[in-house]
Amino acid sequence: MLWALVAAGAAVRAALAMPADPTGQLESEFLPLGPYLPPRGEVGYLEAFEDAGGDEAVRTHYAAQYALVPRVVLARVGQEFVIVARDTARPGGDSRLDGYLLVTRAPSGHSVYRRLAP
């Protein structure tokens, strides 16, 4: 019982030391893009031009999906609408966005692009 009490105290201490989760913040950053996207269906998502598989890049993509449900946010371009998260496009012009036009950019830096021709 003594061990259990000590372990429970350590658990509370560990919980207090945990950092705040950024998911809520990321979600609120992507929500303003919703009105510029179709209400349902698939939309594209531009993967980060470097370290696309890193934790932060993956978290940002997943948070975009979480915020924009019931749309399905696919990690590729080619759809009529493409979400470009902050700092994911190559600086100075990203060839993956050729043929797309900026529709809106949220204060957070996340953007929606739309294909010029079907």
Binding site: A4, L5, V12, M18
Partner: peptide, 20 residues
């Protein structure tokens, strides 16, 4: 009872930090 109370504190703390 003390242990369960302490254990209940953890979800409350974590919810405040990670509501999702």
């Amino acid at each position: 009872v003390a242990l369960v109370a302490a254990s209940c504190a953890v979800p409350v703390i974590e919810y405040l930090r990670s509501p999702h």
